[in-house]
Design a protein around this nucleic acid. Structure first.
Length: 288
DNA sequence: CCTCAGGGCTCTC
DNA sequence: GAGAGCCCTGAG
């Protein structure tokens, strides 16, 4: 991996297993949007555009300092996905799924943003999730300008802890409004300390997250996988449930549920396997 | 126009 | 542990 920079654009060469569409449209993050040239996203207080030409990754509006403090980690560029896909390919089902979802990377998002985002995700479609998060950011976040366009940071904890229910409702949160506000208050009061969760075990961190209203096993697993480096998390949504019951019907008959089966089968790579399977299920419209 | 499902959770029994 | 109900919106 060779990194260069000029005129506020980072160029990363020698990268493999990087497919922007699969990364940004697999439902792990909700603030990346295609603008005709690349994917524009807001991470912390930075707006960047990601352009990929099959050889070089361009990160526009970023300097070298940002690259090493933010983007290297955010895009999980130091993880060897070749090794992960090799190991997972021992399972013929996942090997097939990887054909469709190759180039996925698990983004290392901010835990607070991931927590709120996946509370919103409950019983909701990706399109509406994105709309709600944009409205929340627009109303409660801070404005960031880039190339004459306005973007908004994700709301901080105080902003949502102090939000009016009516405002949350206006943003389209529906019945999740109270969950968001109560979760924000719980974190502000220190009853759940997100900064400690990375150093905890998967099970301990999961237990903490489950204290938050609106957070059940699926949402907790998403937060653990997408923001807390818990690669053994295996979020089971309707898509993953369907694809697992389709692909592993026989094995599941003799196992103690999907979660337990995935843990045994995929181990610490369960989260990666889940991403390939989720993408595969949606592409193939399994069960539809 | 209608019905239904969507990266589920909470509450009740 | 099983089941109903849930804000709202896009898809059919």
């Amino acid at each position: 991996m060779i990194v260069n920079s000029h005129e506020n654009v980072i160029e990363v060469e020698g990268l493999t297993n990087f497919h922007p569409q699969h990364i940004f449209e697999c439902g792990q993050a909700f603030r990346w949007n295609w603008d005709g040239k690349g994917y524009i996203g807001v991470v912390a207080d930075k707006v960047v555009r990601i352009v990929w030409d099959d050889k070089v990754l361009f990160i526009e509006n970023a300097n070298l300092d940002d690259f090493f403090t933010i983007w290297l980690d955010y895009f999980d560029l130091e993880t060897d996905y070749g090794e992960i896909t090799n190991v997972l390919s021992e399972d013929p089902m996942v090997r097939e799924a990887i054909k469709y979802g190759w180039g996925i990377r698990i983004l290392k998002q901010d835990p607070w943003e991931a927590l709120v985002s996946f509370i919103i995700s409950a019983n909701n479609g990706i399109k509406r999730i994105k709309t709600i998060i944009e409205r929340l950011s627009c109303r409660f976040g801070k404005e960031v300008l880039w190339q004459g366009q306005k973007y908004y940071t994700f709301p901080d904890i105080d902003a949502l802890a102090d939000a009016d229910q009516a405002e949350l409702k206006d943003c389209g949160c529906g019945y999740r409004g109270p969950y968001i506000k109560e979760t924000a208050k719980l974190i502000r009061e220190g009853q759940v300390d997100l900064s400690l969760l990375k150093t905890m075990s998967y099970k301990e961190a999961q237990k903490q997250l489950l204290k938050c209203p609106g957070v059940g096993p699926k949402v907790a697993d998403c937060v653990l996988l997408f923001s807390l480096d818990k690669s053994q998390a295996f979020p089971i949504d309707v898509w993953v449930k369907r694809i697992m019951e389709t692909l592993y019907a026989d094995e599941l008959r003799y196992s103690n549920g999907i979660r337990s089966f995935a843990e045994d089968r995929f181990g610490v790579y369960a989260g990666y396997a889940q991403q390939y399977l989720f993408y595969y299920a949606r592409e193939m419209k399994i069960g539809k």
